[in-house]
Write a protein that binds this DNA or RNA. Structure first.
Length: 573
RNA sequence: ACCCCGGUAGCUCAGUCGGAUAGAGCAGCGGACUUCUAAUCCGCAGGUCGCGCGUUCGAAUCGCGCCCGGGGUACCA
């Protein structure tokens, strides 16, 4: 089933081609978009203005010609020519109602499978082993997961890979710290927290103590050479960390197809450098192996340190190579913070020179900061992700208890969980990814306005309507009655429902989940307004059924949309 | 010094790659619950889109210059 926007765009395309058969119009946008204002109708086409210069005609005349050349279209009530050359289209209510009826039978809500047959690797979350996840990790995890879900729904084969930081230079210090400062009790209580403490203590000692630094380096070399004792420790660190991460992922509803740390690629690093040498891409400079990218006005990129060690860029090159060999992806998407922009530009440039033709995309997001201090992870004012989620659930619980005192405690907790976690996720997803976010509890846990609970509340009200309808009219089925769009609120809601496919596609292709969030909020607002101002269970026969059908369509759309953002929709709230 | 982002209502933010009279939410003020969940709805008020010049039918959006803030800039990831 095609979306209305696509149908109208195709229709408009044919009209322009019929009006100007002698001109090659390929490459010009001739489609329609949702109107910027209701007063202009439902969809608008701005193509005439763009064509004016090329056709050397007045835009109004061009638009007029296209309108005249357009085939009769029963889906359209009227077409207006406005302003300098806008073509404004108003949908016919009857046709729109028939479309909605068909939509109700469509599991995909008219969202096309544009990714059919294509594969995309998504690299997100990727925390470092032996460090607890804090609020800085939530953006990569939540935004990455939303994109993951969006692409899957569009028909792509998605390989979600959690590329853990488990093979860095930090392990020398960590192993040393473990051997000297370990507190077994603390380790039992919270392994990852203790590992972090050990690292910090070891790091601080290394600042002042040169012998300690040398020792750490030696431990790292031993690990890299496969020393069994160090390898066992390293493995243990990884397992403890992963177990801790899994708890967070379970709470967030995030799962990966692969969890491959950087260590997975460690045996291929030498081969990458060798290949770069052979192709003349890497040369020795100041004792290190370096790829120069002067022609792209990028700084040089080190692929092998003078001590023989490898770093991030080399691992990532090996990772790209490995992913191409194993999955033959059309696209590899990385979701990281903004500080890595330069790294990825260098990486992509080198990969291309090595013959990689896969599309490589870096989706970056702004850093999370705290109001007073400028994002200081060192000063100890980091907020642990676990604590954030706890707080969110606690706050939600007190509200649920107040508004639904008759509910069982278990159900209250379950709803508070869905609402609290949803609020935290939505706070991130509803914002443009690349903006810098200043973290505040109030914003992260907002329960009114443009928030997850607002959307969840709308879903719960609909579920309630559906249940009450079933109780009061057990012998009727809404599907047996046609949809009618007579009340302005019904029409308004209908027009929004049919715009879902474009919101999904735009969110995915622009890598901006907030596009979908905005759409859902707008839809929920239209529904709330409808709900508050138009009676349905008390409406007369047929009208009641029609309105219940609109409720069900809204519900399906909201639920699918929130599901794509990774947000749960309880039946009661 | 150079590179990349951002600057929109008191606050937090949208703005569909150049479109029509710049939109939401909080906060503020005023209304609406014997009714389908008031975690809601309706209304009011709130703007030099950082500043200047330019490009054209048309600029918050594109170009140049400046101001302010953030991030980055060869052996960390």
């Amino acid at each position: 089933m095609k979306s209305i926007e696509i149908q109208l765009s195709e229709w408009m395309n044919r009209a322009f081609r019929a009006a100007f058969p002698e001109v090659d119009l390929s490459g010009f946008p001739l489609g329609v978009t949702a109107t910027t204002e209701e007063a202009f109708g439902d969809y608008q086409c701005n193509a005439a203005m763009g064509l004016a210069r090329v056709l050397k005609k007045k835009p109004r005349d061009i638009a007029e010609a296209a309108i005249q050349a357009a085939a009769p279209n029963p889906a359209i009530k009227k077409v207006d020519l406005a302003g300098p050359g806008f073509i404004n289209i108003t949908l016919d209510e009857q046709a729109l109602a028939r479309y909605l009826e068909a939509l109700q039978a469509d599991q995909r809500l008219a969202v096309p499978r544009t990714g059919e047959g294509r594969t995309v690797v998504m690299d997100y979350s990727s925390p470092n082993v032996a460090k607890p996840m804090h609020i800085g990790h939530i953006r990569s995890t939540v935004i990455g997961n939303a994109l993951d879900r969006l692409y899957r729904f569009l028909g792509y084969r998605v390989i979600a890979d959690n590329h853990l930081g488990d093979w860095g230079t930090q392990f020398g210090l960590l192993i040393l710290g473990y051997r000297h400062f370990l507190d077994p009790e603390a380790m039992k209580r919270n392994a990852v927290e203790e590992l972090e403490r050990l690292y910090v203590e070891s790091y601080e000692r290394a600042q002042a103590d040169e012998a300690w630094r040398d020792q750490a380096r030696a431990e790292l070399v031993k690990l890299q050479k496969g020393d069994p004792e160090n390898e066992a420790l390293w493995k243990q660190f990884g397992e403890l960390s992963l177990a801790e991460f899994e708890k967070i992922y379970a709470r967030l509803g995030v799962s990966f197809d692969l969890v491959r740390g950087e260590s997975f690629y460690r045996d291929r690093l030498a081969g990458i450098v060798e290949e770069l040498n052979q192709k003349g891409l890497a040369v020795e400079s100041e004792g290190a192996q370096v790829v120069f990218l002067d022609d792209l006005k990028l700084p040089p990129c080190i692929v092998q340190k003078k001590d023989g060690g490898y770093n991030y860029a080399t691992t990532d090159l090996a990772t790209i190579r490995s992913r191409i060999m194993e999955f033959a992806p059309d696209k590899i998407v990385y979701v990281t913070d903004e500080r890595q922009q330069l790294h990825f530009r260098q990486l992509f440039a080198i990969a291309e020179r090595m013959g990689c033709s896969t599309e490589l995309v870096h989706v970056w997001f702004g850093l999370m900061r705290l109001p007073g201090a400028t994002f200081s992870t060192r000063q100890g004012n980091v907020i642990r992700l676990e604590k954030l989620l706890d707080e969110a659930e606690t706050r939600a619980l007190s509200i649920v208890r107040e508004s639904s005192p008759s509910m069982s405690p278990e159900q209250q907790r379950e709803i508070a969980r869905a609402v609290g976690i949803g609020a935290v996720k939505y706070a991130d997803l509803s914002q443009h990814p690349q903006s810098v976010v200043t973290f505040t509890w109030e914003k992260a846990l907002a329960l009114d306005g443009n928030s997850a609970p607002y959307l969840q509340y709308a879903c719960a009200r609909i579920a309630s309507v559906r249940d009450k309808y079933g109780e009061r009219f057990p012998d009727r089925n809404p599907i047996d009655s046609p949809i009618r769009l007579e009340h302005p609120m019904e029409r308004k809601l209908a027009v929004r429902i049919v715009r879902f496919p474009e919101a999904v596609e735009r969110a995915a292709h622009q890598f901006k989940p907030n596009v979908l969030a905005d759409y859902l909020y707008d839809l929920a607002q239209a529904y709330s307004s409808f709900y508050q101002n138009v009676p349905f269970l008390k409406a007369e026969d047929e009208v009641r059924e029609s309105r219940v059908r609109l409720c069900m369509l809204t519900e399906a759309t909201l639920r699918k949309g929130l599901n794509l953002l990774g947000i749960e929709t309880p039946d009661r709230i």
